[in-house]
């Protein structure tokens, strides 16, 4: 089980992610009850159905999926989980930047998958606010030091829209 870091503390994860078993398709998979994070393909195939039976909806987006494709649906989501199948696949950072900066998504933005201590600082900068730290990693130490590797930054990003050069005294 991944360890969820949220609001600067270890949190209990109330969400379940719908996974398609072999042979199941987005069109045919049974939609479970509860707080569910739906893969993008399931959301696209079953949107009306999901809205009719779920009040709280989550979305899972993979590195090769484009957030533009659901940009009109963002108001439905309480949480959007961006998957990092391998931590060296950096596409999720752009997905997060777009969600926050271009589409003004304000719900929970969660990094899931191969989420490690040494990427937390960058993840927060692009707009993630919850982190499913990989199983077996020291979550307490990550909380203590992973988010404050650097005291300031040069570039613009989600959590600091002004570049350092505009903030110089």
């Amino acid at each position: 089980m991944a360890q969820l870091i949220k609001n600067d503390t270890l949190a209990v994860d109330t969400w379940k992610t719908l996974e398609l078993a072999e042979g199941e398709t987005p069109e045919s998979v049974a939609l479970p009850a509860g707080d569910i994070i739906f893969p993008l393909a399931v959301w696209q195939a079953r949107k009306t159905e999901i809205i009719s039976c779920h009040k709280r909806i989550g979305l899972l987006i993979q590195p090769d999926e484009l957030i533009e494709d659901v940009a009109g649906d963002l108001e439905y989501f309480i949480v959007i989980a961006v998957n990092f199948p391998k931590f060296v696949d950096g596409r999720g950072y752009s997905t997060a930047s777009l969600l926050r900066q271009r589409y003004r998504y304000e719900g929970e933005l969660r990094a899931v998958g191969d989420v490690l201590h040494d990427q937390l600082f960058f993840m927060r900068r692009v707009g993630f606010d919850s982190y499913a730290l990989k199983d077996g990693k020291n979550a307490v130490y990550a909380l203590e030091t992973g988010f404050n590797s650097f005291s300031d930054t040069y570039q613009t990003s989600t959590n600091q829209p002004q570049p350092y050069f505009r903030r110089r005294a």
Partner: peptide, 13 residues
């Protein structure tokens, strides 16, 4: 140089 240093979106190209 400053812009590239620790750019959060482009650390894993």
């Amino acid at each position: 140089r400053e812009w590239t240093t620790f750019h959060p979106e482009f650390a894993f190209l």
